[in-house]
Every structure is written in structure tokens, then in C-alpha cells.
């Protein structure tokens, strides 16, 4: 069942992003920023967590999932470290993804060349 929900929820989220892009005078970068912030806010009020439980990768793979990861990371860090967790929790939770992207980016820059 989660495989169906993953497809549907992921697809719908992309549809919403596409509508924002096509109907308002914004660039894709603006849409990404908007959606990551939305993910953090919805994560903060507990809604996004429910979506992740329902749709799995359908909610964690799109960019709002990244905002959600940052917020839950902060939540867990605060439990352990207290207020300092507000500063360390977000990046700790997202470290794997960011570091992977940096390394892959560096690697690709050395190996590949842009094409038309």
C-alpha cells in the first residue's frame, strides 16, 4: 500500500510545485526555497510526520522532506543536548545527504563535461 501512496503523494507534491512555478512569476529556486520552508513548518506542527508515515519516500524524497528532516533533527538533539540542539540538530540530521551531494558534485566535476 505504501508503494501506491509514495507515488501519489510524491506526484501531487510535484504538481503543487509546478503550479506555483507556472502561475506566479518565480524561478525554480524560489519554489525550492518555499517548499523546504513549508516542509519545516509542517514538520514543526506534526503534520509532515504523519505524511511520511503514510507515504514513505513519497514524502521524504521531495524537498519538503528535507525541511522536515531538519526540524525532527533539531527536536531529537534538543532532547539530548538541551538548547544547544537548536543549533546542531538540523545539520546533524541532514549531514548524510549534504555530504553526499558535495562529494558527488566534486567527483562529477572531475569526471564529466557538460553537454549541449
Amino acid at each position: 500500500m505504501i508503494f501506491l501512496w509514495a507515488f501519489l503523494v510524491g506526484g501531487v507534491m510535484c504538481v503543487l510545485a509546478q503550479l506555483v512555478l507556472d502561475l506566479f512569476p518565480v524561478t525554480p529556486a524560489h519554489v525550492l526555497v518555499l517548499f523546504v520552508v513549508l516542509g519545516a513548518v509542517l514538520g514543526g506542527v506534526g503534520l509532515y510526520g504523519k505524511l511520511v508515515t503514510l507515504a514513505g519516500a513519497g514524502a521524504s524524497v521531495p524537498l519538503p522532506g528535507f525541511g522536515y528532516t531538519l526540524v525532527t533533527g533539531i527536536g531529537e538533539a534538543v532532547k539530548v543536548k538541551g538548547i544547544l540542539g537548536l543549533l546542531t540538530g538540523g545539520l546533524t540530521a541532514a549531514a548524510g545527504g549534504i555530504k553526499a551531494a558535495v562529494l558527488f558534485g566534486l567527483f562529477a566535476a572531475l569526471v564529466f563535461k557538460p553537454k549541449a
Partner: peptide
């Protein structure tokens, strides 16, 4: 479009 940009692969 955003179907390719919004997922983490787009990031």
C-alpha cells in the same frame, strides 16, 4: 518540470 526538480535527485 518540478517533478524532476523537487525530489532530492533535483537537489
Amino acid at each position: 518540470g518540478m517533478g524532476g526538480t523537487l525530489p532530492i535527485t533535483g537537489f
